[in-house]
């Protein structure tokens, strides 16, 4: 394996639930003692059911969830960030390196901004471009890469369908030129006929822009198609990880087996094998 771009060591993310009059509140560990390496240029999938902690893990890498314990390092050879202890300046710098694609392209785009302004906003906020001409040039460049019709840049998001909106959302994510992207359920809200188009676009952009992805999804068949490495999360822990082919050909953990068996087959005569699996529960400390 090549050098990891992101290394996660024994990461724990805990959230308080409720309050107590005295003493610390009880904590629920959304992510428990997780270690994962994301090599440069890889397309790593993170699968699991709702509540498994996959989104929290993705957010922790982007410094958007509290790191209770453990360490996350981002190191591209030139720059190195220790995510748990970033200074303000470093954090700003890191934001141009690592970005997030959201799930719902209907909620992620401001209805009051034109497509051009939506894509330009990160550039302006981070001060990456100096003049308006420079910003426009950058917006056009990234829009073209995301296959957005340049004539659409002056329009507002309401005029676009789900697939087009997701392309706009991806362009905004990539505007600042990040090298690492967390894609959190970015095709879950899309129709089947559009989903394939967005997945192909992500692959294309990975080649064009030399990106590394953490692809979070609950849909194993999608993950199987785009990711080269998969980690399976269950109740806050990574229960199994490995190259996609190995995981899908020969799952080891009972939960992975149950997940794979549960996917409805397109062949009416192939009744999925039902694998029994004893479910655990989330524990609360304190």
């Amino acid at each position: 394996m090549t050098t990891p771009l992101v290394s996660i060591d024994n990461l724990t993310v805990a959230f308080p639930i409720g309050r107590k009059l005295f003493g610390p509140p009880p904590m629920v560990k959304a992510v428990k003692n997780v270690s994962l390496s994301i090599p440069k240029g890889s397309f790593v999938g993170l699968v699991g059911e709702s509540g498994s902690g996959k989104t929290t893990l993705g957010r922790a890498i982007l410094q958007a969830a509290p790191i209770t314990d453990g360490k996350i390092t981002y190191d591209d050879g030139e720059r190195r960030y220790d995510i748990a202890s970033l200074s303000k300046d470093k954090l700003r710098d890191f934001r141009s390196q690592a970005q997030l694609i959201f799930q719902d392209p209907y909620a992620a785009l401001s209805p009051r901004m034109t497509v051009r302004d939506i894509i330009a906003e990160p550039l302006e906020v981070m001060g990456l471009t100096k003049t308006r001409e420079e910003t426009d040039a950058r917006v056009r460049e990234i829009a073209a890469k995301c296959r957005i019709n340049l004539e659409h840049l002056r329009r507002y998001p309401h005029a676009f369908s789900g697939g087009q909106r997701q392309r706009i959302s991806i362009a905004r994510t990539l505007a600042a030129g990040p090298k690492f992207v967390v894609a959190d359920e970015c095709v879950a809200a899309l129709d089947v006929s559009i989903q394939a188009d967005i997945l192909n676009l992500l692959k294309q952009l990975q080649r064009d822009l030399d990106l590394t992805y953490l692809f979070i999804s609950h849909d194993l068949s999608v993950v199987a198609h785009v990711c080269d490495y998969v980690a399976v999360m269950y109740l806050g822990e990574i229960v199994e990880e490995g190259p996609t082919r190995e995981i899908f050909a020969n799952p080891q953990h009972d939960y992975t087996k149950a997940l794979l068996a549960a996917i409805p087959s397109l062949d009416p005569d192939q009744r999925s094998r039902v694998v029994s699996f004893e479910r655990g529960t989330v524990t609360v400390d304190g």
């Binding site: 089947v192 394939a196 849909d219 194993l220 068949s221 198609h225 996609t244 899908f248 397109l266």
Partner: peptide
Amino acid sequence: LLNALPNLDNLDAPLTP
């Protein structure tokens, strides 16, 4: 629709939108 769906039996098949 069928071609756009990821097929678990053939991971190399391209997704055709």
